[in-house]
Simulated assay, not measured.
Amino acid sequence: MRDILLLLPDFLLIVVGFLVCRYTTLNRPIWESMEKLVYHLLFPVLLFTSIVRNPLNPADAASLALGGVATVVLGMGLAYALGRWPGVDPMLHASGAQTAFRFNSYVALAMAERLGGAAGVAQMAVLVAVCVPLCNAGAVLPLARHGGHHLGRELMRNPLILSTLGGLVANLLGLQFPDAVGTTLQRIGSAALPLGLMAVGAGLQLGGLTIAPKLATALLTIRHALLPAFALGFGLWRQLPPLELTVLVAFAAMPTASSAYVLAVRMGGHGPFVAGLVTVSTLLGMVTLPAWIALRLAVG
């Protein structure tokens, strides 16, 4: 029950964003500006500070990092393969494919602390550091192709990729900020989650997923069933230590990243479809994430 309640505030923030946008004077033009703020400033700062403040030692977590990368690569391959289905709309696929392999890093770090304290956070930080650039590159690829953007240029100027790489370098160099600077960055980053989730709700259209229900079902199946099953099998095969195995399974079972909607909108994708996927993924995660953790404990 406590694990389920960890995701409940995320879902409620999406509902709040939907209600505020639909039934108050804070309508779409305001939220469009908010999406830009979240995408270009708040989420990058959140990613940077999350990685910098959690010590990394990649040499001690090579198998864990390999498991995270393998899980993401599998998700990318399966998601891309869906684009070859007969009748799949290229725009919808380019917009929604990212939701099959991206993950909510903020919830991941919070869950890791609950599962393993500081050690759990440090291990999840390794996964965040190595997988966020890969996930963002994989998300940008189909959107860049569909929108006619130059892939290399989009990757080099993507604020989520740049902030993650910057955080990784700063972490490995042992960079320390003065207290005033560090606190300011943390407060900026802390605004990313509520405003980002409310922006998802503001862009939500209840019929968003009905445009392509089969594609939506397939993407959510990859995110919430196939990837956690693979991660569990990989961890058992590699004989990961108990906490690393738990963290890897939790990572693979995370709901998709709320910033997926913002990225889709900023790159000309189908926002309502992605907003629906993010909302349903968050709701599913409230049930499937505790279930996968329970299964890992049962078989481990």
Rank of each mutant, 00 (worst) to 15 (best):
A62P: 00
S63C: 08
L66V: 10
G67R: 01
A70E: 03
T71C: 12
V73A: 12
V73D: 03
L74A: 12
M76K: 07
L78R: 02
Y80K: 14
R84Q: 15
L92Q: 04
A94W: 07
G96H: 06
A97V: 06
A100H: 00
F101W: 04
F103A: 04
S105M: 12
Y106A: 14
Y106G: 04
V107E: 06
L109N: 03
L109T: 04
E113C: 11
R114F: 10
L115T: 05
L115F: 04
L115R: 01
A119S: 14
V121C: 09
V130W: 00
C131V: 00
P133Q: 01
N136V: 08
G138H: 07
A139C: 08
V140C: 01
L143R: 01
A144T: 06
R145D: 05
H146D: 09
G147S: 04
G148C: 04
L151K: 00
G152T: 02
G152Q: 01
G152I: 02
E154P: 05
E154T: 12
L155V: 06
R157G: 08
R157H: 10
N158P: 10
N158F: 08
P159V: 03
L160W: 02
L162T: 12
L162K: 06
L165G: 06
V169Y: 05
N171C: 15
L173I: 10
L175Q: 12
L175F: 15
L175R: 09
Q176R: 15
F177S: 05
T184G: 12
L185T: 11
